[in-house]
Amino acid sequence: MTPGQNHSYYLIQKQRIVELAWPPPPKSAEVSFKGRVLRLLHGGPRPGSPEQCVDPGDFESAVNVLDQQDIEAAISAFTRLGYQVTVRTLR
């Protein structure tokens, strides 16, 4: 699994949903029309996106911690990677 903007994991044994959200990048100076067109033509991940900022191996390690049903350790691991973590109860 690769880092992305949003992820949801259902932990049936613990009756919890762990949701990850990548925070939006800080507002920077206005990008010109030409700059936006060049970015569209160039392609690739946006600057400040998890695809650029998060190492896939570290992300996979955090997912493995979550697979072990250790919610507290997983929250800590994903927070260190830069994600905002929300835990909800299954109903």
Rank of each mutant, 00 (worst) to 15 (best):
66 L>S: 05
75 I>P: 01
39 R>M: 09
73 A>T: 08
83 Y>A: 09
34 K>L: 11
28 S>T: 15
72 E>S: 10
69 Q>D: 12
12 I>Q: 07
73 A>W: 04
50 P>R: 00
17 I>H: 01
39 R>K: 14
15 Q>D: 01
24 P>I: 07
29 A>R: 09
11 L>K: 01
77 A>M: 02
13 Q>L: 10
74 A>M: 05
52 Q>L: 13
66 L>T: 00
19 E>K: 10
65 V>G: 05
37 V>R: 13
5 Q>A: 12
73 A>H: 07
62 A>V: 09
69 Q>A: 12
74 A>N: 01
90 L>E: 00
58 D>I: 00
9 Y>F: 15
27 K>N: 09
38 L>C: 04
74 A>G: 11
39 R>N: 07
70 D>Y: 03
48 G>C: 05
17 I>W: 00
2 T>L: 14
58 D>P: 01
31 V>G: 08
28 S>A: 14
59 F>P: 06
40 L>E: 11
72 E>Y: 05
55 D>N: 13
19 E>H: 05
20 L>A: 06
60 E>A: 14
49 S>G: 08
2 T>W: 03
76 S>E: 15
3 P>D: 03
81 L>S: 03
91 R>D: 02
50 P>K: 05
71 I>G: 04
80 R>D: 13
45 P>K: 01
53 C>S: 13
30 E>Y: 05
85 V>R: 06
63 V>P: 03
68 Q>P: 00
91 R>Q: 08
43 G>D: 08
82 G>P: 03
18 V>L: 12
55 D>I: 08
83 Y>G: 08
89 T>D: 04
56 P>C: 02
23 P>N: 08
38 L>Q: 14
33 F>G: 12
11 L>Q: 03
37 V>G: 01
56 P>K: 06
14 K>S: 05
87 V>W: 02
49 S>P: 04
3 P>Q: 08
90 L>Y: 00
6 N>I: 10
82 G>R: 07
74 A>F: 04
51 E>I: 06
30 E>G: 06
63 V>I: 14
68 Q>L: 12
22 W>A: 10
32 S>D: 10
11 L>E: 08
47 P>F: 05
20 L>I: 08
79 T>W: 00
27 K>C: 06
30 E>L: 11
86 T>H: 06
77 A>S: 08
78 F>P: 02
15 Q>M: 10
77 A>P: 03
50 P>V: 07
59 F>L: 10
32 S>K: 09
5 Q>W: 13
44 G>C: 11
13 Q>N: 12
34 K>W: 08
26 P>Y: 11
13 Q>W: 01
68 Q>G: 13
62 A>C: 10
64 N>K: 13
78 F>R: 04
69 Q>H: 14
3 P>R: 09
60 E>K: 11
24 P>Y: 04
67 D>Y: 11
71 I>S: 02
28 S>L: 11
55 D>Q: 13
32 S>P: 12
67 D>T: 05
68 Q>A: 15
14 K>V: 04
